[in-house]
């Protein structure tokens, strides 16, 4: 392993890069402050601090096992279920610590939605999949639910393809349609943040392209964090990119800059495909 000359003591210093702002009134939606994550004795995340702008797309890139998925899942506390999981530091949403004991995890996840690597619709109808988030909140007003279902499916650019088949089984849809359905399902509860964990890795290029277009469209109203293995995808869709390696944040900043003129050699090597 090559030595990290720029950053000999990760505990003491911080990666001095900041995301690019589109406008001055944009503020930080999600913030990580000196975050360490352990699974038992294994340290998966090493002292990462990073701020994510609202209504922007932030990509996490890095080789397999670098901790990017673990890091993503901190923002909706999906790691809580893993045996031996332990976190230090602070993660905040709208300046509020989300690991504070007073925070209800269920409420947090209604604000921070998630789309997974493999499309995972419930074995229910298309309609019921999208309605699920509303039903678990105890909403009974069927007109309201129907309006929200249609609206969410339209937002996820799926409605025109399936508008006559809302009662059909979701599992009968193609992989790409299933993934857009999962996005619609997440949008139905009106989150403000959308976490996407390699959302196109199980899809063909055409379906992936549709998801990318959709993500770009959603940026107007949502803060999106996307983990991806695909360099081109990160380059195409994101405003800011964070490069993680072995649990450390190596570089974070404007996507254009990271991809054309990275500060660190390791970033350069990864992006140009020399390792990873």
């Amino acid at each position: 392993m090559e030595s990290e000359t720029q950053n000999p003591n990760p505990k003491a210093s911080k990666v001095e890069t900041k995301p690019k702002m589109d406008s001055k009134d944009q503020s930080f939606k999600l913030q990580a402050n000196n975050v360490d994550v352990f699974y038992g004795d294994f340290q998966a995340i090493k002292n990462i601090s990073l701020d994510i702008l609202e209504r922007s797309i932030t990509a996490f890139i890095g080789p397999s096992g670098c901790g990017k998925s673990t890091f993503l899942r901190l923002f909706n506390r999906m790691n809580d279920y893993i045996d031996g999981f332990h976190m230090e530091g602070e993660i905040s949403l709208d300046k509020q610590d989300i690991y504070d004991p007073s925070i209800k995890v269920e409420e947090l996840r209604k604000t921070v939605g998630m789309v997974f690597q493999k499309p995972n619709p419930f074995p229910k109808s298309i309609y019921e999949n999208v309605a699920y988030g509303l039903r678990i909140q105890g909403i009974k007003d069927e007109d309201f639910i129907e309006k929200r279902v249609v609206e969410s499916l339209k937002q996820a650019t799926l409605f025109s393809e399936i508008k006559d088949d809302l009662d059909k089984q979701a599992l009968a849809l193609s992989g790409g349609q299933q993934q857009r359905l999962c996005i619609a399902r997440a949008l139905a509860v009106k989150p403000s943040v959308l976490l996407m964990d390699e959302p196109t890795s199980a899809l063909d290029p055409i379906s992936s392209g549709k998801i990318e277009d959709l993500v770009h469209e959603l940026k107007k109203n949502y803060t999106i964090v996307i983990v991806t293995h695909n360099m081109q995808q990160a380059g195409r869709v994101s405003d800011n990119t964070a490069f993680l390696y072995m649990g450390e944040l190596i570089e974070y900043g404007d996507t254009q800059k990271i991809f054309t003129n990275p500060e660190k050699d390791r970033t350069q090597n990864y992006i140009t495909g020399r390792f990873g």
Partner: peptide, 25 residues
Amino acid sequence: NSLRQASFGMGSTKFQTAFRVMVPA
């Protein structure tokens, strides 16, 4: 397990996940 994750990700409680997702599935 991906269905359980999806359900938790939507803000379901354990009980809701068990009886609205897992049992029907």
